[in-house]
């Protein structure tokens, strides 16, 4: 009798747990459908329509995509600007982040202090950060050109125009992005410190020098976090917007008019929701393909404790 009763109360508990699972998850579940899945499907549908916030969306098939790809004089330039940004900022960010982490991964006093300093730029509001670099790179009075002045004289050249020069503007925004490389450094550093000390000891006994230990032990064992930052860098890089919006307004000559900027203009200024949705889906597709490509590099990623 007793066991039967216990059994039934247990199944009752199980059944209750199922129900409670949904109850507890309901805020997120509702959010997933209302603020996630529904908008996503809706934007997919909208990308095949023409809609300017008045009336109802009118289905026009692939027209938005066709116009964007073949008949739009800003689509390809904005995509190219974004690709340029991603292709340079992601690898440079990786290198600087890893280099900083390698420097700090020594049993040196004050490591925590340096770590805090290098991370600090990451907590600055992106508007404040943009204004700051606008001033530092300011071509006539900015400190960077002032410091470089002897070099300009030596080479007998005009001072660089940085964000005012269409050839340099993208690069300027990439360079200033390196100031926040300390964000990924924290992740690398944490992973480096998880590497068992015995590995280094064993390498020392075998006569490995510091460089060999770095390239044969530290870097391979860091690949999971390098990989993580690589993918996140690509996803984030394709959404670059605010720094250009604040610093250059997309110029000069649209040289910093990025994909997300064009999408923003289409949406907010032109109310061209169909075309903007098509751009959003193209962005999703590009991000997805690049992420998949990056994931195929996964086999070069070395997970400690997984090797057989």
């Amino acid at each position: 009798m007793v066991t039967v009763k216990k059994q039934s109360s247990l199944t009752a508990l199980k059944r209750q747990e199922k129900r409670l699972g949904y109850v507890f998850a309901s805020p997120w579940l509702i959010g997933l459908f209302v603020f996630g899945a529904f908008p996503m499907l809706a934007s997919f549908y909208l990308s095949f329509t023409t809609y300017n916030m008045v009336g109802v969306p009118r289905f026009i098939g692939l027209t938005n995509y066709r116009i964007l790809l073949f008949n739009d004089n800003l689509f390809w330039p904005s995509l190219w600007n974004t690709l340029y940004h991603v292709m340079l900022s992601v690898p440079l960010g990786l290198v600087v982040g890893i280099a900083l982490a390698l420097l700090l991964n020594t049993k040196i006093r004050g490591m925590g202090f340096y770590r805090t300093l290098f991370y600090l730029p990451n907590v600055v509001s992106v508007v404040a950060l943009s204004l700051l670099w606008l001033w530092l790179f300011q071509p006539s009075f900015g400190i960077i050109n002032q410091v470089l002045d002897p070099v300009y004289r030596l080479l007998n050249m005009e001072p660089l125009g940085w964000y005012r020069d269409a050839r340099l503007s993208k690069l300027t925004l990439i360079l200033m992005g390196l100031w926040t490389a300390g964000g990924s450094m924290i992740i690398y550093l944490a992973q480096m410190q998880d590497i068992p000390f015995e590995l280094y000891e064993a390498a020392s006994i075998d006569g490995a020098n510091a460089l060999q230990k770095t390239t044969r032990i530290t870097l391979p064992l860091m690949t999971p976090s390098i990989f993580f930052n690589f993918i996140m860098g690509i996803i984030g890089g394709f959404q670059v917007f605010t720094i250009a919006y604040i610093m250059t307004g997309g110029g000069p000559s649209r040289s910093t008019y990025y994909f997300a900027y064009y999408l923003f203009d289409k949406m907010i200024h032109d109310n061209n929701m169909g075309s903007a949705s098509a751009m959003a889906w193209i962005l999703l597709l590009i991000t997805l393909v690049l992420t998949m490509l990056a994931l195929s590099l996964n086999r070069f990623v070395f997970y400690l404790g997984e090797q057989k």
Binding site: F35, F38, M40, S43, M267, M279, A280, L283, T287
Partner: peptide, 11 residues
């Protein structure tokens, strides 16, 4: 992984 723009417009 989803870019915010994809859900931005319908929202």
């Amino acid at each position: 992984m989803i870019p915010i723009q994809v859900i931005l417009i319908p929202s």
